[in-house]
Design a protein around this nucleic acid. Structure first.
Length: 419
DNA sequence: GTAATCACG
DNA sequence: ACGTACGTGATTACA
């Protein structure tokens, strides 16, 4: 094949115009690194360690013996054989007792020990994976954390981050957020800027499916989960309750993941039949979404791959499997991969555009992290106005969809505040 | 090495 | 009748 022919190929173009330029951006980010507030973390570590010891003592006393709290096997035997806190026991696929957060949360009222175990687990995770581990990874020369971004690991085209993984720093719990506070600017002339895409995957679904209701919600700046709730529960938008909105949010997640009645019923804590009705209603209200999903699956059956807006492929060899479960998994991938992958395309292109403009304007600010729908910067305070403008414009304008892309930007003395 | 668990989007 | 939401990485226990 001659080079002129090569240039016309979509995948070759993706490689040349996105992945290769991105490589340099990622390498700059890795080399720059991010600063950590180690004094704060060392205090936090002591605090957590004390709490953990107290919880340990407490749990041993209640259960009547000392055991390895980090062993799910021993934990299961104590809870379900010795203490017999419940008779209908859930097992994992290898026949062990399940002691996962999901299982234990359902047993909360059954015994006071459950709350202590859950708290212990949360603190132990925080301490071992983040609070103690990250300071040990500070580079001797730069005194910063330097992650490695994998460009060719995730099947959908997302990046991944290792050694350490800086894409899964806690934020959902109060103590977790304290960990995020430890990510700080490199010196007092700098601040953290965080910019994240609002609902990027649902916007992509709206655009790719061309569903009228979904397009109009995004084009009119309406809260998508409330809009979905109003449609699915057949009420006025002003009459949408918190619970209806929260259920609709789960439905929207489900749509992106390749929804199943079982999956939705599990998450909403309702019967499968009720979940099936909600899904049925959803597809009546958003018919083009259903069409798009069927189209994706059919395309996958014909080609054994699906593709993103920039032509990135995910091969689905199991799409025609005679095994129903294996096939269903591939079908959910056929729905999810173009959505998740297109979001990855968009932010990757935005990163190249932003970096190019930052270099052109000779900024001292630096791009530090990418967390799938978010970019984090070490921002020179004097560059606040120009950097904000560059980041917002490039991220929102890098690709034109049939709905606007919206980017929210925050600033702060640490990564938490910047949200 | 694999399983279980849990952190994130 | 089955067993299910998508994508990752790190820690710990245990064979």
């Amino acid at each position: 094949m001659c080079s002129e022919e090569l240039k016309k190929l979509k995948l070759y173009n993706l490689f040349q115009s996105i992945e290769m330029p991105l490589l340099k951006v990622l390498s700059d980010m890795e080399l720059e690194g991010i600063s950590l507030d180690t004094e704060m973390l060392s205090d936090f570590s002591e605090e957590l360690s004390k709490d953990i010891v107290n919880l340990e003592r407490n749990i041993y006393e209640i259960s009547g013996e000392e055991f390895n709290l980090s062993s799910p096997k021993q934990m299961g035997e104590i809870l379900f054989e010795k203490m017999k806190i419940i008779d209908k026991v859930k097992k994992t696929k290898t026949g062990q007792y399940s002691t996962s957060e999901e299982t234990l949360s359902k047993l909360k009222g059954k015994h006071q020990i459950i709350d202590h175990i859950l708290e212990y687990r949360g603190l132990q995770k925080l301490l071992s994976t983040y609070v103690k581990a990250l300071p040990l990874l500070l580079d001797k020369n730069t005194n910063k954390i330097h992650t490695t971004f994998n460009q060719s690991v995730a099947a959908t085209g997302r990046l991944s981050s290792v050694s350490p993984n800086l894409q899964n720093i806690p934020i959902r719990t109060e103590k977790g957020r304290k960990m995020r506070k430890a990510f700080i600017p490199k010196n007092s002339d700098f601040e953290i800027l965080a910019a994240d895409y609002s609902q990027i995957e649902l916007r992509i679904m709206a655009s790719l499916s061309a569903d009228t209701s979904m397009l109009s919600a995004f084009n009119n700046g309406i809260d998508i989960h409330s809009a979905t709730a109003a449609k699915v529960y057949k009420v006025e938008e002003k009459d949408v309750t918190r619970e209806m909105r929260s259920h609709a949010k789960m439905v929207n997640f489900g749509i992106i993941y390749g929804i199943s009645a079982f999956g939705l019923s599990q998450r909403l804590g309702i019967k499968r039949k009720e979940a099936a009705e909600i899904i049925e209603n959803y597809f009546i209200e958003f018919p083009k979404v259903k069409e798009y999903m069927d189209l994706s699956i059919n395309k996958a059956r014909d080609n054994e791959f699906v593709e993103t807006i920039l032509g990135r492929r995910r091969y689905l060899k199991d799409i025609n499997s005679r095994n129903g479960m294996i096939r269903a998994f591939a079908e959910r991938n056929a729905i999810n991969a173009p959505i998740q992958g297109s979001a990855a395309d968009i932010i990757k292109k935005a990163m190249i555009d932003v970096q190019k403009e930052m270099e052109k304007q000779n900024l001292e600010s630096r791009m530090l992290l990418q967390v799938h729908d978010e970019l984090v910067f070490d921002m020179k305070k004097s560059e606040k106005e120009i950097l904000t403008k560059i980041v917002k414009e490039k991220m929102e304008q890098t690709i034109t969809l049939d709905v606007p892309l919206v980017v929210d930007i925050g600033f702060g003395e640490n990564w938490l505040e910047a949200h």
